[in-house]
Simulated assay, not measured.
Amino acid sequence: MDQLEFFDIPSPCIGVCQSGKSGYCTGCFRSRDERLYWNQATPYAKRIIIKACQRRKSIAQRKKNSDAAATTPKQTDLFD
């Protein structure tokens, strides 16, 4: 059931607007259709899109951190 919204839900756009390898925007993590139809979406749909974007962003950050950890050489101890 849709909840009554008193205020419009703002777009999660941060002005980067570039598609990454996965097809999602590298700034807000929305798909092309989510960006295209944002203004026509219901408040309920907008909340779902924002939650999906947050989930995509956390997955991308975890992947980035694990890739950086795998490629960064470990510093050896000077006194070993």
Results as ranks from 00 to 15, higher is better:
A52G: 04
D67V: 07
E34M: 00
I59D: 05
Q61A: 13
Q3A: 11
A69G: 06
S66M: 13
S11D: 08
A68Y: 06
P12T: 01
Y37N: 15
C13H: 11
C13L: 06
T42I: 05
E5V: 12
R35T: 06
A52Q: 11
D80S: 14
T72R: 15
I59F: 08
G15T: 03
T76M: 13
Q18A: 09
Q54S: 14
R47S: 02
Q75T: 06
G23D: 00
A45H: 05
C28N: 04
K51T: 09
D33I: 02
S66K: 15
R32C: 06
E5I: 05
R30W: 06
A41C: 08
T72I: 06
P10T: 03
I59Y: 11
S31R: 01
T71K: 13
F29D: 00
K51D: 09
Q18K: 13
Y44V: 05
C28A: 02
P12H: 07
I59N: 10
D33A: 12
D8E: 15
D2I: 02
Y37Q: 08
C25Y: 00
P10W: 10
L78G: 09
D8W: 07
K46T: 01
R62Q: 15
R30D: 04
F7H: 14
K64C: 07
D80K: 14
F29Y: 12
R32K: 14
S31K: 00
A70C: 07
P43A: 04
A70G: 09
M1P: 12
K64A: 13
K74D: 11
K63Y: 05
S22M: 11
A60D: 03
M1V: 14
A45M: 11
K57S: 03
I50F: 05
G23K: 07
T72E: 14
S31G: 05
Y37M: 10
I50W: 00
A68D: 09
S66H: 09
M1Y: 12
A70Y: 01
R55D: 11
I59Q: 14
F29A: 06
K74W: 08
I14C: 11
L4K: 15
I50L: 15
A45Y: 04
C13E: 10
R55C: 08
R56N: 10
R30Y: 09
S66P: 00
D2H: 04
L78A: 14
A60K: 10
K74T: 13
S66E: 10
R56E: 04
D80E: 03
I48W: 04
Q3D: 11
R35Q: 10
I48G: 02
K46N: 02
I48K: 12
D2W: 02
A70W: 02
L78I: 10
G15M: 02
A41I: 01
W38E: 01
A60C: 06
A60L: 01
Q75V: 13
I48T: 11
K57N: 05
D67R: 14
L4S: 12
P12C: 07
S11F: 06
I14Q: 03
A52R: 15
Y24G: 02
I14L: 09
A45L: 12
Q54R: 15
N39E: 14
I59E: 08
P10S: 12
R47W: 01
L36A: 11
Q54F: 08
R32H: 10
S11W: 03
I49N: 00
